[in-house]
């Protein structure tokens, strides 16, 4: 499993970049994409939508499952990865780059520090 140590993580398998100007980028981990199997569709939030931490913000579908993706931190959506409409498989082939899901302007950038680091996340993933 690939778990870059520049990122922070949630127990529900989202990765989050360090806030830059209050904005973080969110995706799902390599471990998560492997568990889901071939992704066929991604339902992304609207730009401008606001979410509480831990509330469902997107849905990723494989052939026979649909998984909610949770906002890791509270805030407002500033951008979504529209390229996934045409190429949902990017989540499988490039979970940390081309497969990013959305960007959030977070209400409290310090909250990022509270998320799991790579080592802690790998321990969580291994329990699953």
């Amino acid at each position: 499993m690939d778990t870059p140590d520049t990122l922070h993580y949630t127990r529900s398998h989202e990765w989050v970049t360090k806030p830059e100007n209050g904005i973080v980028t969110v995706g799902i981990t390599d471990f998560a994409q492997d568990q889901l199997g071939d992704v066929v569709f991604v339902e992304l939030p609207s730009v401008g939508a606001r979410f509480d931490a831990g509330s469902p913000a997107a849905v990723i579908e494989s052939v026979k499952t649909a998984s909610d993706i949770y906002a890791p931190l509270a805030g407002e959506i500033t951008a979504v990865n529209d390229a996934l409409d045409a190429e949902p498989e990017a989540i499988n082939s490039s979970p940390y780059e081309n497969g990013w899901l959305f960007k959030i302007r977070v209400a409290d950038p310090a909250g990022w520090e509270e998320l799991l680091d790579a080592g802690a996340y790998e321990a969580v993933a291994q329990e699953d």
Partner: peptide, 13 residues
Amino acid sequence: TLQAREQHIRRSK
């Protein structure tokens, strides 16, 4: 196809 819309997968959603 597109079965993830349906009740047997999404249940209450």
